[in-house]
Every structure is written in structure tokens, then in C-alpha cells.
Amino acid sequence: MKTQLAVLLVVAMMVPSAFAIGDITVGPYFGMAVPLANDDAESGALYGFQARVSLIPGLSIGGHYQSRGYGNPSQTFFEGTPQEFTDEKDGGDVTSIGLDAYFGKAGGMPGLNFYFMGSYGTYKWKRDNQDEISKTAFAVGPGVELVLPMKVGIEGRALIEVAPTGESGSWKSFLWFVGINYHIGLGPM
């Protein structure tokens, strides 16, 4: 984790400056979670709420709450026998609370703003009849926000999320969502 943070800091220093600062952004978002190489869950809808503040040119930090409901995986049993049937198990719900770091234009400058972000947070997976799983997860990916003059932004983001299981394995998901933001506060400085 120290290595990853160091990489992110180096990258932050590479980002050109002169973006907006002092902006506070809040808003909900909605999208999909697509499990990658994961037999325990299928794609499902997600929603969340995020807030961020732009501290210095090219860097914003924030937090999020997110909830997703995975689809149920299915399996056929006793194939080719009189007992054959296809069944499902619960894909479960994942909730996450985390911290986010944005590198690039995430500060509410009117127009089309691109950024790259990293996220680190909790990962609680609840499924019927199975023990709750509680891990930490991190996610990285690009995003873009179209900020309109009335301080409203329409944002889209795509993330690769990894929740290490602790045994050299991990649960991986591709997340995409769109959100509507309201930019509060000082705006571009």
C-alpha cells in the first residue's frame, strides 16, 4: 500500500496545474457493477453518494458511500438425470465507505474536465446464508465531468476495483456510473 500511495503522489506531481481550486462537489451517482473472473456474483446495479473538495491545483480529495446489489449466479445440478434442476444462490449486496483522491480537473471548472482517481475503502459483502465478508478494497480509473455554468455537473466514471481476499486472491469488479453533481463553495480561483 505504501508503494501505491507513493506512485499516486508522484503522479499527482506530474499533473499540470492551473485548474480550479476551492470547489466543493456533492452529488449522487448510479451505474453498474460487473464482477470480473468471479463465479460468486453476476452484474448488478449500484448507487452512491460522493463529495469532494479541491485543495490545490490538480488534486481533490473526497469520500463516498456506495451500495450495490449483485445478480445471482446460477448452476445446473444433476445434469442428465431425473433430478436435474437449475438453481441460483444469492449474489449479495456490497456496501462501501471510502476515501477518494482525484488527479486532474475535478474542481468544477466550467466545461469538459478529465481526471484520474484512486479510491480506498471498506468492502462489506452480505449474502443469504453465508458469513458476511468484510475487506478493504481499492479502485482506480478515469472520469470525466461536464460542468455547466449553473454549477451543475454531469459526471461519468469507470473503475477497476480490487478487494484482496488475503490469500493472494481478490474479488475484482468493473464499475461504471454516471452522476449529477452540484458545485458548492468558492468555485474557480
Partner: peptide, 8 residues
């Protein structure tokens, strides 16, 4: 820069 960050 964004492509580079993604690759890293």
C-alpha cells in the same frame, strides 16, 4: 498523463 496514470 491520464493514460500514463492508468498504466501505472
Amino acid at each position: 498523463n491520464y493514460i500514463l496514470m492508468g498504466l501505472i
